[in-house]
Design a protein around this nucleic acid. Structure first.
Length: 495
RNA sequence: GCCGCGUUCGUCUAGGGGUCUAGGACGCCGCCCUUUCACGGCGGUAGCACGGGUUCGAAUCCCGUACGCGGUACCA
């Protein structure tokens, strides 16, 4: 019988949740939910007090929930493995570090930052481009391997600052199987004696991570590729602690269109929102972001493109995750957004559109808006477009689009004037799309001009723009009174 | 520099020795629909990084090169 799958998303609360972090969370979520009784844990890795950002944890939680990825265990949701903030687990780590010292796999080090710097500079000067605190250099540093036992005890007793470092073996090949990449191996001589316990008593990521993953009975560690290089240290830690390591999967990174990790700076200069918060504020459809992100570095292997979160959980598997980095394709995201927007019924869209309208100082009527939605739906990319592009449904245009004005010709006012004459003769109850269209035809026939001659000026007068939804149904909705008022205003203003 | 990981259309990917004259999607272009724009439909554009092997046969396996990315902290 296979054990229950338990995975964790372990972000550091150093800022708003990055879009790459959201994808890591998504893959973890999909993997967990794709297994019977799989558990998705949220663990907050706040061991670096200097980088802690107030509110970051809440942002992470809000972002996950917005995306539909509710966690099973995490802060405020104890599943018997809490607490889920590493700062609250501080006392647990020290004993494991000490256990490693006792078993000879770690040691106390008393070097000051200055001494560490000196060592690095000295080594660099002698031609070593990446000086490490390792099996060779540690013998010339101040630690429990070089100092007499009495001095070490004395220092510890005096409460002098110290760190605990992992004693990485001199020559050893560390090999493990990555679920995505297959077997990966590292030589221990390339590793440094990683600090496990910092001088403030907090564990570093490496120790905390291994201890927590073990204690929380995590079965699969699914994280970004930036961790691949430190994975051998983790493997060593599991071995020295006598624990069985979880399965590991290192995800390809999300790259910027200009290359490289999608950093805040790059993303912004390339017009890509970087934080999940940005997508929430820009009112993206969460289903679109999720679908897009799922396919950024993974595919189900068939030609399908559209899947709900639920379907994705059934389809997802680690062996179908690609190995190379994936460049963020903003246009495809927009395509997904359009798709999901079109799929949603007007009733569902209405409350959100209403809220946006109110932000724009409009007070839309429900029944009326419900009729506007189908007219606009096929042409919007984001839900805000219903208002930014369809504002004319709710109020007279204040200005006319400059580009559109090029279509306003000498004879436009005269043609519109004739059209006004036709409209005045139509009863309110007969103010329908097809009647409006045939009236327009009568006018252009009388003048012997083409359809567009009157169509474009009419559109500009009523909507203020040169493009938009099917005009006659729009006029019908806007109504006789407002339509006439707008045309007259335009004739007056544009001559 | 060193270590590690990667490399199929512009982008995301399918492909795991013959069925590949390499498939799908986004984008772009064209046509149709629509007497606007868009949606939709149809079609087109464009790719196995390079060089060696292995094999009857390689996008698929091996080696090398190039390029890219990641790591190289008492940050995660």
């Amino acid at each position: 019988m296979k054990e229950t799958v338990r995975v964790r998303f372990a972000p550091s609360p150093t800022g708003l949740l990055h879009i790459g972090g959201l994808r890591t969370a998504l893959y973890n979520y999909l993997f967990a939910k794709g297994h019977p009784a799989g558990v998705f844990v949220l663990r907050i890795e706040d061991t670096d007090q200097s980088r802690y950002v107030e509110g970051a944890e809440q942002d992470i939680i809000d972002s996950l929930i917005w995306a539909g990825m509710d966690f099973d265990e995490g802060p405020g949701r104890d599943g018997g493995f809490g607490p889920y903030r590493q700062s609250e687990r501080k006392d647990m780590y020290k004993q494991y570090a000490e256990r490693l010292v006792e078993s000879g796999h770690a040691y106390y080090a008393f070097d000051t930052p200055e001494e560490l710097n000196q060592m690095r500079e000295r080594l660099q000067e002698s031609g070593n481009p990446s000086p490490k605190y390792d099996s060779i250099t540690r013998m010339s540093m101040k630690n429990s391997l070089t100092l007499p036992q009495e001095e070490v005890d004395q220092k510890l007793q005096n409460g002098e600052e110290y760190v605990i470092r992992l004693k990485v073996p001199r020559r050893e090949t560390i090999r493990f199987e990555d679920e995505i990449r297959g077997f990966v191996s590292f030589e221990s001589k390339g590793l440094d004696d990683q600090v496990l316990l910092k001088s403030d008593g907090m564990p570093t990521y490496h120790l905390a991570n291994v201890v927590d993953d073990h204690l929380m009975e995590i079965t699969h560690v699914i994280r970004g590729e930036e961790w691949l290089s430190s994975a051998p240290k983790h493997i060593l830690l599991y071995e020295y602690l006598g624990w069985e390591p979880p399965k590991m999967a290192h995800l390809p990174l999300i790259m910027s269109p200009s290359g490289g990790k999608l950093s805040k700076r790059k993303a912004e200069s390339e017009g890509i929102p970087i934080n999940t918060r940005d997508y929430i504020e820009q009112k993206f459809e969460p289903e679109a972001l999720v679908n897009f992100l799922a396919y950024l570095g993974w595919s189900p292997g068939d030609d399908s493109e559209i899947h709900s979160l639920q379907e994705l959980t059934e389809l997802f598997s680690l062996d179908r995750v690609s190995k190379g980095g994936a460049i963020f394709n903003y246009k495809k995201l927009i395509w997904y957004n359009e798709h999901y927007l079109r799929e949603k019924p007007a009733e569902e869209l209405y409350p959100r559109i209403r809220a946006i309208a109110e932000e724009h100082g409009l007070k839309p009527d429900k029944a009326y808006t419900l009729e506007v939605i189908p007219l606009m739906k096929e042409r919007v990319s984001k839900i805000e477009d219903f208002i930014t592009q369809g504002r004319f449904f709710f109020e007279d245009p204040e200005a006319y689009d400059e580009q559109a004005l090029k279509k306003w010709k000498e004879d436009s006012a005269g043609l519109l004037q004739d059209y006004v004459g036709k409209l005045e003769g139509i009863d309110d109850k007969d103010f329908k799309a097809d009647t409006l269209k045939s009236s327009l035809k009568e006018v252009i026939d009388a003048h012997g001009v083409g359809f567009g001659k009157l169509m474009m000026p009419l559109r500009i007068a009523v909507t203020g723009m040169g493009f938009g939804p099917d005009l006659f149904p729009a006029l019908e909705l806007i109504g006789k009174e407002a339509t006439l008022r707008r045309i007259r205003t335009a004739i007056e203003r544009l001559g």
